[in-house]
């Protein structure tokens, strides 16, 4: 066990965990941030995606010890003052989910994409999102949601 100060959703939180425990496990089981999902634990499904310093990252593959100096944003950290982020709002508007279990990872991956590429082409969306699985098969709506979010965001691509 070691002590870490994590920067999660803009707050500094103290956590005790083994250095090599996955960030996913720490978020869910020690910090009770259960919006980030376990899907495979092997970086193959994207359900556990969070932003690490703005980069969409599979939290199941990151040891908590190596995330201690990064700014971590989870699905719980996208809403501000009761207002959904542009990507969250677009997923809601497009009805881009069925069971919704993949949704947090989809939204974080899409947020990472739009920060990097504010106006992505359809091909860029598929490339960036292809590591995220939706077993319910809502991919066309997710692509539509990302395109909608891209249109609704300021041209500079600032999405907090």
């Amino acid at each position: 066990m070691a002590d870490f100060i994590l920067n999660v959703n803009g707050a500094h939180v103290h956590v005790q965990a083994p250095f090599d425990e996955s960030l996913l496990s720490v978020l869910r089981n020690r910090l009770h941030l259960t919006g980030t999902k376990y899907g495979c634990g092997e970086g193959q499904c994207g359900a556990c995606t969070v932003l690490l310093d703005g980069e969409a990252t599979r939290s199941c593959l990151v040891a908590v010890g190596s995330a201690a100096n990064a700014k971590i944003i989870t699905i719980e950290g996208l809403e501000h003052d009761g207002k959904l982020s542009a990507v969250q709002q677009a997923f809601l508007d497009e009805g881009a989910f069925q069971c919704g279990y993949c949704t947090a990872g989809m939204i974080l991956s899409a947020t990472g994409l739009l920060q990097r590429t504010p106006k992505p082409t359809a091909e860029q969306i598929v490339d960036a999102m292809n590591g995220n699985l939706c077993r319910c098969g809502t991919y066309p709506r997710i692509v539509a949601a990302i395109q909608r979010a891209a249109q609704s965001m300021p041209a500079k691509g600032a999405n907090r």
Binding site: T34, L92, Y101
Partner: peptide, 21 residues
């Protein structure tokens, strides 16, 4: 009609069976 509690699915607030604590 839009999905009931749709907002909870885009904010991570919805508690799935594996989220119970």
């Amino acid at each position: 009609v839009a999905k009931v509690d749709g907002r909870d699915f885009v904010t991570g607030a919805h508690k799935y069976p594996s989220d119970m604590i």
